[in-house]
């Protein structure tokens, strides 16, 4: 709890990556959104036992990560946080599906084990795809694109403001927590019976602050419903990106790579 400030840095670490320069970063947000969605839909459209056919999809995150120079630790750390529920569902498959899928070096590998691996692997693919999208596309360009896709303006503005307010609010919480700890030296952390008033106080303070921020924005001529990004046309490079990501993915979905495996290996 004391390290709220480090958490703030952690929240925005992914966004900082998006300010880098690379060929992938420069692409139009629309093509990146489209390829991410296509990737996820294709990955989850496979049957749950299709581990072998899913394997080649690893190329998408690996190559994009390398091209955009996104460091793996950030992505892996966040993936680890999402694991528990997937493991829970996967392990229940191991318990309930005991039919043998194949025998490997004298060991019976059950269908459930295959599906466990498949669930974890597809979770990995989906998580990295989404995090990659954010790591290579600045927030402002994503929201501008969402506006152009005719998402309700009020919702997109809310989304932007909410995202920025998180840091403000956590800063406020950190100040309050320090003050609380200085006043109550005999306790280690926040007392349960103070939780309601602590959180309530934080809420009211933020509420007031939000009003002040809003007034300040208005004074400077902010008009939320008019703020639209400049229209940017798709360039040849954008079409190239779209083709280079989507065509191989679709091909991998249609062609059964297992046949290729048995020919090559």
């Amino acid at each position: 709890m004391a390290d709220i400030r480090s958490k703030i840095a952690d929240i925005y670490s992914l966004e900082q990556l998006s300010l880098k320069k690379s060929w992938v970063h420069d692409r139009h947000p629309l093509v990146k959104l489209a390829s991410t969605f296509l990737f996820i839909i294709l990955v989850v459209s496979f049957d749950r036992y299709e581990l072998a056919r899913l394997a080649p999809f690893i190329f998408y995150p690996v190559i994009l990560m390398a091209l955009s120079e996104t460091p793996w630790p950030i992505v892996l750390k966040r993936f680890a946080l999402t694991l528990p529920f997937c493991l829970f569902a996967g392990i229940s498959n191991v318990i309930f599906e005991r039919k043998t899928a194949f025998i490997l070096m004298g060991l019976n590998i059950s269908v459930g084990v295959v599906s466990l691996f498949s669930i974890v692997f597809r979770a990995f693919l989906c998580v990295t795809a989404v995090l990659l999208l954010i790591a290579v596309t600045p927030m402002s360009r994503i929201t501008a694109q969402l506006r152009r896709l005719h998402l309700p303006d009020i919702f997109v503005t809310l989304f932007e403001m909410l995202y920025r307010y998180i840091a403000v609010l956590l800063g406020e919480a950190s100040t309050m927590y320090t003050a609380y700890m200085l006043r109550s030296t005999e306790f280690k952390g926040l007392q349960m019976r103070h939780m309601g008033s602590f959180a309530g106080q934080l809420l009211i303070r933020s509420y007031d602050r939000a009003e002040r921020v809003y007034n300040a924005m208005k004074c400077r001529g902010y008009d939320s419903f008019a703020a639209r990004g400049k229209k940017k046309r798709l360039s040849a490079a954008d079409y190239l990106y779209l083709a280079a990501t989507c065509l191989p993915l679709i091909a991998l979905r249609i062609i059964d790579v297992r046949a290729a495996y048995s020919i090559v290996f």
Binding site: Y165, L169, L202, E211
Partner: peptide
């Protein structure tokens, strides 16, 4: 209401 919506949303997140 927009800023209030944003800040209360951020509260749920921050909490």
């Amino acid at each position: 209401k927009l800023p209030l919506m944003a800040v209360t949303g951020a509260f749920v997140f921050a909490a």
